[in-house]
């Protein structure tokens, strides 16, 4: 049992699931927008780690399955742009609200 747990894909998968759970919990808990964006990034990191675990599980010989790795790279590009867009909107919202409040 312990030997199985220490195999890399199970470890990655378990950590990925932990990150997903933490991300979801913080997304549900927090209302502040920056915390929500961070929580969403943790959630995304968990999903990507899970994909990495699948790549490792499907390993053939010495090399991992390349397809999930390609998916992770594309996913990271998407999530960086998503974070940038969310931060840009949040910032403009903040300046807008400051301008009206002052």
């Amino acid at each position: 049992m312990i030997a199985e747990l220490s195999s890399p894909f199970l470890l990655y998968g378990a950590v990925g699931c932990l990150l997903i759970g933490m991300g979801l919990y913080s997304l549900a808990l927090h209302t502040h927008v920056y915390r929500r964006i961070l929580a969403w990034n943790a959630l995304g990191g968990g999903v990507f780690l899970f994909l990495g675990a699948i790549a490792k599980r499907n390993a053939y010989g010495g090399s991992s399955d390349p397809l999930p790795q390609a998916l992770v790279i594309t996913g990271i590009v998407v999530s960086v742009s998503a974070t940038a867009l969310a931060l840009a909107i949040a910032r403009r919202l903040q300046t807008e609200e400051r301008g009206n409040g002052a």
Binding site: L27, V33, R36, I37, W40, L43, A82, L85, A86, I89, A90, R92, L93, E96, E97, N100
Partner: peptide, 16 residues
Amino acid sequence: AQALRAALTYLMTALT
């Protein structure tokens, strides 16, 4: 500001 707030809610929901 109202549109920005609606867009942000939409974005966070859609991303999740």
